[in-house]
Design a protein around this nucleic acid. Structure first.
Lengths: 216, 216
DNA sequence: GTCTATAGCAGGATAGAC
DNA sequence: GTCTATCCTGCTATAGAC
């Protein structure tokens, strides 16, 4: 059995800071809360990270970005098995990576909440997320989708559709209060499978609007 | 020319509190900031609203809910002009109400940001928003869409699609940092028209997935 | 590297003069 | 209804013992 002493203080701080920041945001969480949760001393945050602000940034650098890579890899691995994946396969893989994927439920929730907070109130971490994760991800996605779309599809249309798809995927992760409230369903494995199907179908058909001339 | 003295102190507090809460969230904004912005005295918040927390709630009660009603009315008025509106008309009206609609750009941004914050970190205001606005809105939307869908479409499928559509609409309002970053476009009137078209097309075609048996 | 103690400040709230 | 002055709590950050 692992107890907290088996993990180094610095790691424990990152771990618990991430959970608390994700749940309630930077300003609503105090250093005292973080060090109590991490069973470390109050002074530890400043000793290891200089400041609360920098701890927040390190959470993104050391925990958020690597996890985003995991999600991306899962997405790529699913697609690598198919040859010439079409819109269907691409969105199936995407919905799967984000709703089921490599992370457990709690981890994914934390991951998306942190991202969402940066989108609503961007801080220094926003640039990190945008440059290191979102931009390459959108580029990769566009590259994969291009062959499925008419040759004259312009870049903006493609980006708007990418954003819309991302919006739906994120929403079903971070806004569970809304989803549970209005569907009456909990996020058990049956409901998650249903969500994957829904997101894949909704995004795929939304993308199909790019195939029709009158909307361009 | 109107100066700040023409508006009662209580109203000025609500006005500026709303802007600041929307921009940076409850915890990041201090009572001192609000009273300075409203050109009122530091003690005014407690005099009129008892506490900062209650001021936040009153912002939703007195400003947010009425504005949500305005958006809803705009949506209904557009639809009232058409007879037997189909999926196309419904989503056209919806995208229009949320992206152009009755509010000016700044107001709509504030409106959606406040809502978004409640979705990410629900407080007492969440129940208000869900009960008084979101629930009736989803019901109304379902009632309008039902005639356009197969008879055996189950309620959950419909709700999931409503949520997805809302996700896209909200996203293009509150996540301008992302949209501007990846499209390179500012929210001028040309781009907004394009967004309306995009959202209407994406949502409508996403909904069309409900028409196909294999996704149910 | 961990701890206690505390500096130093900003926050929400209130009492009481006007 | 408005204002000043102030209380008091809770915060981040740091100094210095161990």
């Amino acid at each position: 059995m692992q107890n907290h002493k088996d993990i180094k203080t610095k790691e424990r701080l990152l771990l618990h800071a991430e959970i608390l920041f994700a749940q309630r945001g930077f300003h609503a969480v105090s250093v005292r809360e973080i060090t109590t949760a991490a069973k470390s001393n109050l002074a530890a945050v400043n000793y290891y990270f200089d400041s609360k602000k920098n701890l927040y940034l390190e959470v993104f650098r050391q925990r958020w970005v690597p996890r985003a890579r995991q999600i991306k890899e899962s997405f790529e691995n699913v697609l690598a098995e198919k040859e010439n994946p079409g819109i269907n396969e691409i969105f199936g893989a995407l919905a799967h990576a984000f709703i089921e994927g490599p992370l457990d439920d709690e981890e994914r929730k934390i991951h998306v909440q942190l991202m969402q907070r940066e989108i609503v109130s961007p801080t220094a971490a926003f640039e990190l997320v945008a440059n290191e994760v979102t931009a390459p991800f959108f580029e990769d996605l566009s590259r994969r989708l291009r062959p499925c779309l008419p040759k004259d599809t312009d870049e903006t249309s493609l980006v708007l559709s990418n954003i819309s798809m991302l919006a739906v995927v994120l929403y079903f992760n971070f806004s569970r209060a809304v989803v549970t409230r209005f569907t009456g369903k909990e996020y058990d494995s049956g409901f998650k499978m249903r969500l994957i199907q829904h997101i894949a179908a909704f995004s795929r058909d939304g993308f199909n609007s790019l195939l029709r001339k009158e909307n361009l």
